[in-house]
């Protein structure tokens, strides 16, 4: 994001093309993905900076799919690192999804959203609620049993734990049809897999960063609107300073993402370290910010559906999906230990 913008302007910029991200060309390509063992699931001209920007935009509340270019809409998906493989899921209902269904019935997307844009879809482990039937759009379930969903939001259900519901031509995969993924098939080369995982972490990291910014903006509005002791909360210095601390910590996150993308050209090690650490930072920040947001809402934050709860829940889901901050840091430490000649304790 550009220096000199207010948070609101940042979001406007992120939402409106042309994108504010001006990044050097990063040689992600189908060839590269094929080398990672992921070629079959990839799309031809993937532009990570654009995807990051779009993820960012989707995180702050805009529906993701309509704003996407055609090829991306077709293949719009999320990276998931499960075990050791990075997996991309196309949007349900697309040809890509059909292809995926035929070739790899591995992961399952479920999906929610109603006319009003928000809905709560109870999803339990391995037991999608019947309410899911008739809902369109992607969803994802995780350890959390309940989700607040935006229409069109993508959520990814780890294998064996969910199902895609049929609606207007959507492929449907009952749970029985779900087969385990043979991750070994993709784990051709440890570093390549690590790089693929780091890519996923980077993209999810961008989402979480966006969620944190969105949470902060909601909190800002709250501080201006909520009056206590006869004045808005925003007039209390303690609250103002807390907001500033969070904003100041969020500000350079984009630089870390950009630096990671640039590092891709330098070499895999550098890219992996940077991407993992940047993502880990975004994750920790999102926790910090959303925890503070909860306090700004006072008692209302006990409730299920106070405004930032959507982001809070989302971070709880997406962080594990991307590889938790703790694990990403662990991986970085492992890489350092290896270069030190000590026994590494990396995840790989």
């Amino acid at each position: 994001m550009q220096l000199g913008m207010t948070w609101e302007a940042m979001i406007e910029t992120a939402l409106a093309p042309p994108l504010d991200f001006t990044l050097p060309e990063v040689p992600f390509s189908s060839t590269w993905l094929a080398e990672q063992g992921l070629g079959a699931w990839w799309f031809p001209d993937f532009a990570p900076e654009e995807l990051i920007a779009r993820l960012w935009a989707s995180a702050v509340g805009r529906l993701p799919a309509p704003g996407l270019p055609g090829w991306l809409r077709e293949w719009y998906g999320w990276s998931v690192s499960l075990g050791r493989a990075l997996v991309w899921l196309p949007l349900p209902g697309t040809a890509a999804a059909g292809e995926l269904a035929r070739s790899q019935p591995a992961l399952v997307t479920v999906l929610g959203g109603d006319a009003e844009g928000v809905s709560r879809v109870p999803v339990a482990w391995g037991r999608p609620s019947p309410k899911l039937a008739g809902m369109a759009g992607p969803v994802l379930a995780s350890k959390v049993s309940r989700l607040c969903l935006w229409e069109g939001e993508t959520v990814i259900v780890p294998q064996g734990l969910g199902a895609v519901e049929r609606k207007e031509g959507l492929a449907m995969f009952p749970l029985d049809y779900v087969e385990p993924v043979d991750f070994q098939r993709y784990a051709v080369d440890g570093r390549a897999v690590a790089r693929a995982r780091a890519t996923g972490a980077l993209l999810w990291g961008a989402w979480l960063w966006g969620a944190a910014v969105a949470g902060l903006l909601l909190a800002r509005r709250r501080l201006l609107e909520r009056h206590q002791f006869g004045r808005p909360l925003a007039r209390f210095q303690a609250t103002r300073h807390q907001m500033v601390d969070l904003a100041v910590a969020l500000e350079p996150q984009a630089d870390l993402f950009e630096a990671a993308l640039r590092a891709y050209q330098e070499g895999p090690e550098d890219f992996i370290q940077r991407a993992n650490l940047a993502a880990a930072r975004a994750m920790r920040l999102s926790h910090q910010v959303l925890k503070a947001c909860a306090l700004f809402w006072g008692g209302y934050s006990f409730l299920q559906d106070y405004p930032p709860s959507r982001y809070t829940l989302a971070t709880r889901i997406f962080e594990p999906v991307a590889g938790e901050a703790h694990d990403l840091e662990e991986e970085a430490i492992g890489t350092l230990s290896r270069s030190e000649g000590k026994a590494g304790e990396s995840q790989l």
């Binding site: 500000e251 350079p252 870390l256 650490l277 880990a280 930072r281 840091e329 350092l336």
Partner: peptide, 28 residues
Amino acid sequence: HREGTRDWLRLWQEAEALRLLNYRMAQA
């Protein structure tokens, strides 16, 4: 030792963020 590396790495990452922010400011 390995102990303490995590906290150290976080600060290192923060230093990196600050460094990049500084360049961005200069560039602006």
